[in-house]
């Protein structure tokens, strides 16, 4: 084996990033148009009846085509985690206040949506809580129009 100290190398940084523009496709386009109207769009399989978010046009190749449907904005918290860190561009850093992230089953859907849950004490979070969507005041047809979820009264 070569002694590590004999290895001569330089550490090179490439001072640029490469940019891409990923095409959304129709179902996600429709999802975002729904956001602009404060609607949550999912897709429903014409064969097995499954309703899922994010929407897509096929329910796997084996099953049926999917059509866009609007789904309920109230749901049940099925899973959660309390974040003491965040990851930005692959680097982890602590957060000032713990953040509650939940996996929410919106009523009538067969999938869970990940969102932030606000207005609840992290110690009180538990599976089964009823939550509802909270929107940005003026939605712009972007993903973060659906700002977070809060406890449904």
């Amino acid at each position: 084996m070569v002694n590590q100290s004999e290895v001569e190398f330089v550490e090179t940084i490439v001072p640029m990033d490469f940019n891409y523009n990923i095409r959304a496709g129709k179902p996600i386009e429709d999802y975002l148009r729904g956001m602009a109207q404060k609607k949550i769009m999912g897709s429903k399989c014409t064969k097995c009846g499954k309703v899922v978010i994010p929407p897509r046009n096929v329910c796997g190749v084996a099953c049926g085509k999917m059509e866009m449907v609007e789904v309920d904005q109230t749901g049940t918290l099925q899973n959660y985690t309390i974040g003491h860190v965040k990851i930005t561009k692959g680097l982890m850093e602590p957060v000032e206040e713990p953040v509650v992230l939940g996996m929410i089953q919106l009523d009538g859907t067969n999938s869970l949506l990940v969102s932030e849950i606000r207005g609840v004490d992290p110690k009180q979070v538990k599976k089964g809580l009823r939550v509802k969507a909270v929107w940005k005041e003026s939605p712009e047809g972007k993903f973060d129009d659906l700002a977070y979820f809060e406890l449904a009264s």
Binding site: G25, I28, N57
Partner: peptide
Amino acid sequence: KRIDVSIAEMANEAAN
């Protein structure tokens, strides 16, 4: 330019 579909949707077209 396929402006209408995402990468995965385009792969789906070929599989179909």
